[in-house]
Design a protein around this nucleic acid. Structure first.
Lengths: 110, 110
DNA sequence: GTGATATTCAACCATTTGGTTGACGTTTCG
DNA sequence: CGAAACGTCAACCAAATGGTTGAATATCAC
């Protein structure tokens, strides 16, 4: 059993939280500072900072500090692997998903 | 902020575990009994039973008991909502679709 | 320099998760 | 009937998750 592509683990785990999905939706519109990301939520800034850490660790978001502001940017490419994995699932019966995950490792590896 | 669609939570959370993804891959080929699902894994039957419970709760798998055997069946439709959610992020942009098609030709060719 | 702003860090807490083991109810088979 | 096979349940455990506060660290603005 292959059980590779640990990126899938972190990406799907990141997507499993509604707060994090809402953050991604916000970042879809524009890059944002951490404080601005946190503004609409009824939870502490530190909690949002942690969520952004999870998103960054999964590759779904990148962060760049300029001055005292840390800008958060959506990285849609990180969704490709997960999305393609799911597409394959829904649409192609009988596919060898182990081979498929190996394919994704190779294609998306860099 | 919306934070709805609890189904997405459970589907993504279910997909975040490599054991569960491997189970889905096995079920893609055919329906299976719980014991047979557990066979290739180096963990207890009870653990696999729990994983199947998570998959069933998320709707990705259905279970039907016939006699003393509980049959597990993949429910690919449950992936649709999550898949559609991802479409919003333009994820397919950088994937090498030619390589993808070649992969599919090879995998599905026979 | 002082003070406000931006963000993280550290410690803590409750809950969930992923695993174990052993006992338990069903169903089948000899 | 009695034993084996199928699967879950219950109790337990360690580790991870998602949140809180309060202090700490930079940076900017006056």
């Amino acid at each position: 059993m292959a059980l590779m592509t640990p990126q899938l683990d972190t990406v799907f785990a990141a997507l499993a939280d509604p707060t994090r999905r809402a953050i991604l939706a916000m970042l879809l519109e524009d890059d944002m500072a951490v404080t601005d990301v946190a503004e609409p939520f009824e939870m502490s800034l530190a909690a949002i900072s942690k969520h952004l850490g999870v998103l960054t660790a999964s590759g779904l978001v990148s962060q760049e500090k300029r001055g005292r502001v840390k800008w958060c940017k959506l990285e849609p490419d990180a969704l490709r692997e997960a999305s393609v994995w799911m597409q394959g699932f829904g649409q192609m019966g009988g596919l060898d998903l182990d081979a498929f995950e190996r394919f994704l490792d190779k294609e998306l590896g860099d």
